[in-house]
Structures are given as structure tokens and as C-alpha cells.
């Protein structure tokens, strides 16, 4: 090896950077988000009717796109009613529809969002539901 010292230091820095996620994966490494569905509004629904606006799978993946569409339809096109794929009708509103059922924002929305470092800016303007437990 020529200039071995410097090259080895460089390699150690390289390996150290690459190993960071393995060494410092964090104390929550095995935690999984568990969005809670036990809000009064949802519990009021009969067992068979405990469904979201769309299917659970769809909501899990595409709720942000749905919200974006709702926003455009309401604010730009002046529409108010959304007919879901199962034929049910909902008023398109973030605060009055989503958050009426999911009134536990910190135990529901934030549970997933903190896990994936998502911080929707919606709450700069829209009002968060009041949560008693806090």
C-alpha cells in the first residue's frame, strides 16, 4: 500500500457512513404504526357498516390522492358530493367528513405519518379535531 494511512481512513469513513442505518436504526426499529379506529363516530356505525369512504386497501395507498381530488372538485369545480365506488354519498370535506369519523388525528393519521416522515401541511389552515386525551 502507498499512502495506506490516508486510504484506510477514507475507507473507514465510507464503511461508517454505509453502516449508519444498521447501527443506529433506532429504538423504534421494530415498532409498527397501529392506526386506531375506536372513535365514537365509527363505533356508532353498525358492525357491517364500519367502512371508509373507499375500500381499506384503496384508502391506505391513495388517501392523499383522494384528498387532493376532493380539494380540486370543491374549491375549483364547486362540487360538494362524492359518490364512492359502492354508491354511497359523502360530502367532500376534510374537516367535516374525514375528521368526523377519524376524530383521533394523533392516534390515526399521525400514527402512520410519523412512521414515514410525512407532515401534511393541511393543518396550517384546516382545523384539527379536538382530542380529549391530550
Amino acid at each position: 500500500m502507498y499512502n495506506g494511512g490516508k486510504i484506510i481512513i477514507g475507507l473507514i469513513i465510507f464503511v461508517g457512513l454505509i453502516a449508519l442505518p444498521f447501527v443506529f436504526s433506532g429504538k423504534g426499529a421494530s415498532a409498527k404504526p397501529e392506526p386506531k379506529l375506536d372513535t365514537p363516530e365509527i363505533l356508532k356505525l353498525p358492525e357491517t357498516e364500519r367502512k371508509c369512504v373507499e375500500s381499506k386497501e384503496y384508502m391506505k395507498r391513495e388517501h392523499m390522492k383522494l384528498l387532493n381530488e376532493w380539494r380540486d372538485w370543491v374549491v375549483r369545480d364547486g362540487l360538494t358530493i362524492y359518490t364512492s365506488s359502492s354508491g354511497k354519498q359523502y360530502t367532500m370535506s376534510l374537516q367535516n367528513t374525514c375528521m368526523k369519523c377519524h376524530s383521533n388525528k394523533t392516534k390515526f393519521c399521525d400514527e402512520c405519518h410519523n412512521y414515514t416522515a410525512v407532515k401534511p401541511y393541511c393543518w396550517d389552515c384546516h382545523i384539527k379535531p379536538k382530542e380529549k386525551e391530550l
Binding site: S25, G26, N114, Y115, A117
Partner: peptide, 9 residues
């Protein structure tokens, strides 16, 4: 992408 490799982030 490191948000996928740390918890807390």
C-alpha cells in the same frame, strides 16, 4: 430515502 431506515427519523 433514509426515512425508510431510521425509526425515529
Amino acid at each position: 430515502h433514509l426515512r425508510f431506515f431510521f425509526e425515529p427519523i
